[in-house]
Amino acid sequence: MVQRGSKVRILRPESYWFQDVGTVASVDQSGIKYPVIVRFEKVNYSGINTNNFAEDELVEVEA
């Protein structure tokens, strides 16, 4: 279970941040499909630095 402030590695192959490390900004408990919002240092092609992920697409590298 990841929690706010954890450092996580992204396992979603189609993601711009695949294999990159980001910080968990928040975790939604309402039961949505992609409840974990992760914030990154670098921006993607659209200038965005956050994205939603499912918990099984993340691996915690640092608490």
Rank of each mutant, 00 (worst) to 15 (best):
M1S: 13
M1D: 07
V2W: 12
Q3E: 07
Q3V: 11
R4H: 06
R4C: 12
G5Q: 03
G5R: 06
G5C: 11
G5P: 02
S6G: 04
S6V: 09
S6I: 08
K7M: 10
K7Q: 08
V8N: 01
R9E: 02
R9K: 10
R9C: 12
I10P: 02
L11Q: 05
R12V: 07
R12K: 08
R12C: 07
R12Q: 06
P13R: 13
E14P: 01
Y16W: 07
Y16K: 02
F18I: 04
F18M: 01
Q19R: 10
Q19H: 09
D20P: 01
D20Y: 10
V21H: 04
G22N: 03
G22K: 02
V24G: 01
A25V: 15
A25P: 00
A25R: 06
S26E: 13
S26Q: 10
V27P: 01
D28V: 08
D28L: 13
S30N: 08
S30E: 05
S30H: 07
S30P: 05
G31L: 10
K33C: 10
Y34F: 11
V36D: 00
V36W: 08
V36H: 01
V36L: 04
I37R: 14
I37W: 15
I37N: 11
I37C: 15
I37V: 14
V38C: 07
V38Y: 00
V38M: 00
R39H: 09
F40L: 00
F40I: 02
E41C: 14
K42C: 13
K42T: 14
K42I: 08
V43Y: 15
V43D: 08
N44V: 06
Y45M: 15
Y45P: 15
Y45G: 14
Y45K: 15
S46N: 14
S46Q: 15
G47F: 05
G47D: 04
G47T: 01
I48Y: 11
N49M: 06
N49L: 05
N49Q: 07
N49P: 03
N52M: 09
N52D: 07
F53S: 02
F53Y: 06
F53P: 01
A54H: 07
E55W: 15
E55C: 14
E55P: 14
D56C: 12
D56T: 09
E57K: 02
L58E: 01
L58R: 02
L58S: 01
L58G: 01
L58V: 11
V59Y: 08
V59I: 12
V59W: 08
E60F: 10
E60N: 09
V61I: 11
V61N: 03
V61F: 06
E62N: 11
A63T: 12
A63W: 12
A63R: 12
